[in-house]
């Protein structure tokens, strides 16, 4: 019996030592639901935070599988950064099962970055699921618009400062440095997109409306006739006809979606299917927020030229 007790105590002690030990280093442990928010929170938090993400950029962010490993990350978290507007609604299940009072809805460590974002595509009339997987609160893919980064990062600063008020000045300083860099990049991106301003593109799933609006591009059609529902052959035929008629050069597709189908349609219509960085880490080279936006700008500017 004594041996068994000793063994158990040794295992517990060993795991305590081997386990993540950010608390000892004085870092805030933050979990982001999606990789874009991980990147932005790392930028704002700098050395003061340790950030993990519940999903990878290559995943469909609407339908992440709720794994117990997510709950373990959330159990240890001082704060959780969520996109909101229904994109990461699945995270609620993981957060509630993590037994962490700091991050439950209403907790001080719950950071919703959709606050104060001017949301696009908010349904103006009654919606139901005959329209597909519509988001009743509006399109939730606003993090793809770098122009909204000031609002998003402001929400992150406010949230982190709620948990660690004494570090607010550092968070704000990091944010200002990031925004200054982003502004420089924005000038470059705007110049790159200027020659193709007004160009029409087709999307697979309505992910890009904020990005396209920001850079003056027009979404002419979507391969999905209703969001989240695989397209019918009739609808695809209509899209191909329209693409040919309007000489549309690009189909924007998410890495997790049916890229083969997008390629087939593009081939039929004489266009190119572009796999976009729909989140940080979605494609090679899109390792942080600025790199992901840069990837999208470069790919689009080249394809639409």
């Amino acid at each position: 019996m004594r041996r068994l007790t000793l063994l158990i105590l040794t295992i517990v002690a060993a795991t305590s030592v081997l386990g993540p030990n950010a608390q000892a280093a004085g870092k805030l442990k933050v979990v982001a639901t999606i990789s874009d928010l991980k990147s932005l929170t790392e930028t704002i938090g700098g050395d003061l935070v340790e950030v993990d993400s519940l999903t990878r950029g290559t995943q469909n962010l609407h339908e992440a599988e709720v794994r117990p490993s997510m709950m373990l990350k959330l159990r240890r978290a001082d704060a959780v950064v969520e996109n909101g507007l229904g994109l990461d609604a699945w995270a609620d299940v993981a957060i509630e099962a993590a037994n962490n009072a700091n991050i439950i809805r209403g907790g001080r460590g719950r950071i919703d970055i959709s606050r104060n974002v001017e949301v696009l595509e908010v349904p103006g009339s009654r919606v139901d699921r005959s329209m597909g997987d519509v988001h009743p609160q509006g399109n939730p893919h606003f993090s793809l618009d770098p122009g909204l980064a000031p609002v998003i990062t402001q929400n992150i600063v406010e949230g982190l400062a709620r948990v660690a008020p004494d570090r607010r000045a550092v968070f704000e300083q990091n944010r200002q440095a990031f925004l200054a860099r982003l502004e420089q990049e924005m000038v470059k991106w705007t110049q790159a997109m200027a020659p193709v301003k007004g160009a029409k593109v087709v999307v697979f799933h309505p992910v890009y409306v904020y990005f396209l609006t920001r850079f003056g591009l027009v979404q002419a059609a979507a391969l999905e006739d209703r969001p989240g529902i695989p397209p019918s052959p009739q609808h695809l035929a209509t899209v191909i006809r329209e693409m040919k008629a309007q000489k549309i050069k690009a189909i924007l597709v998410e890495p997790w979606n049916d890229v083969k189908l997008a390629n087939r349609v593009a081939e039929e219509a004489g266009a190119r299917a572009l796999v976009m960085a729909t989140a940080v880490g979605a494609v090679k080279g899109a390792d942080n927020y600025i790199a992901a936006i840069d990837y999208n700008i470069t790919a689009l500017a080249k394809a639409l030229r």
Binding site: G147, M186, R214
Partner: peptide
């Protein structure tokens, strides 16, 4: 505004 087409980064809100 996000709905407009101006490709200019907005100034960050004052901290």
């Amino acid at each position: 505004a996000p709905g407009t087409t101006q490709p200019v980064a907005p100034a960050p809100p004052v901290a």
